[in-house]
Amino acid sequence: MLSIGEFSKICRVSTKTLRYYDEIGLIKPDEINSETGYRYYSIKQLKNILFINRLKSYHFSLDEIKELKDIMELDKGQFEEILYSKLKLKKLEMENKLKSLEYSLNQLNNDISNIQNNIPIMSYLDNIKVELVDTEAMNILYVRKTMTKEDFFDGYGSYFGKLYERIALERLTPVGKPMTIYHNSEFNLDGNDLEFAIPIKETVDGTRILPGGLCAKSVLKGSFTELSALYIKLSEWVEENGYELTKSPYEVYIVNPNQVESSDELVTEVFFSIKKK
């Protein structure tokens, strides 16, 4: 048996962290001396620490790790399947974060270059074009959820995936690109009211009519991180030209983000439904 200090030294995890792991039930000492309260760990528990550290390096939370560990102790066969699925999801999350970081780095280099050439850092807003368009009413198959900004990308894949599954199973006819409608009156860090939708031909349970009408439209070619710039530009344009919003803004994804190698390939249309003041 190893004392908590010896165990800490071998696995390079502080005794404070080991005590916390014990508190939350992640890894408990094999033995606690009833008189002294000293904690002792077995050699075999070193593998458990390696497992925990490995998942932490993949950005699993302690709650996620404990859930997996509990499953492993109950059903090893089920554990392998669930672990495989969880690792695939983490891989996708990390790839998305890496793409976002690469985009930010390229953007930073571009801003540095612009400043060196006496080009204002916010001048890119002048290149965002806004046009007036008349849109047709659409019959949309939709699902409405409340989710945070961090959950959005996963939500994109999950909820649009479920909508396309239903379209395939019921042999429905898509007639437009997937879209997201934003129903919040303002951005909310705790969760935003979103509607994931796909225009279809048939009227079935779970469809509704998205009204058409006059819209201010702008197109983004590139990463979703630049969408806020489009929203700002559209808001300024609406105000400066004497219009006001009438319905929730929405985005149309001309290019599926799950089918591109670079965010530079993305094309997103943003629509503000408007009328004259």
Rank of each mutant, 00 (worst) to 15 (best):
L2G: 08
T15M: 02
T15A: 10
K16Y: 13
T17P: 14
T17F: 14
L18V: 07
Y21M: 02
D22K: 03
I24S: 06
L26G: 01
I27M: 03
P29D: 02
E31V: 11
S34V: 07
S34D: 13
E35C: 15
T36I: 05
Y40P: 07
I43Y: 13
Q45I: 09
I49W: 10
I49Q: 06
S57V: 03
Y58F: 14
S61P: 05
L62A: 07
D63P: 08
I65Y: 05
I65K: 05
E67P: 03
E67T: 09
L68R: 01
K69F: 09
D75V: 03
D75H: 03
K76N: 04
G77K: 15
G77I: 12
F79V: 11
E80K: 11
E81W: 11
I82K: 03
L87G: 01
K88I: 06
L89V: 08
K90N: 06
E93K: 06
E95K: 13
K99D: 08
S100Y: 01
L101H: 10
Y103K: 07
L105C: 13
Q107Y: 13
L108Q: 10
N110D: 11
I112K: 05
N117V: 08
N117F: 14
N117Q: 13
N118A: 12
I119A: 06
I119P: 07
M122A: 15
M122G: 11
S123C: 04
D126V: 09
I128P: 13
K129I: 08
D134Q: 09
E136C: 13
A137L: 13
A137R: 14
N139E: 02
T146N: 07
F152M: 15
Y156K: 01
Y156T: 00
S158K: 10
G161A: 03
A168T: 08
R171N: 15
T173C: 09
V175M: 14
G176P: 04
K177N: 09
M179L: 15
M179D: 00
T180L: 04
H183F: 12
N184T: 13
N184S: 11
E186K: 15
E186M: 15
D190N: 11
N192C: 08
N192Y: 02
A197L: 03
I198E: 00
P199G: 07
I200K: 00
K201L: 09
V204M: 07
D205W: 14
R208V: 04
R208N: 10
I209W: 10
G212M: 07
C215K: 00
A216E: 05
V219I: 11
K221H: 08
T225Y: 06
L227H: 10
L234T: 02
L234S: 05
E236T: 08
E236R: 04
W237N: 03
E240A: 12
N241D: 11
L245I: 15
T246H: 06
T246L: 03
Y250M: 03
V252N: 09
Q259N: 12
Q259E: 12
V260F: 00
E261Y: 06
E261T: 01
T268N: 09
F272T: 01
F272Y: 09
K275M: 06
K276I: 07
K276N: 13
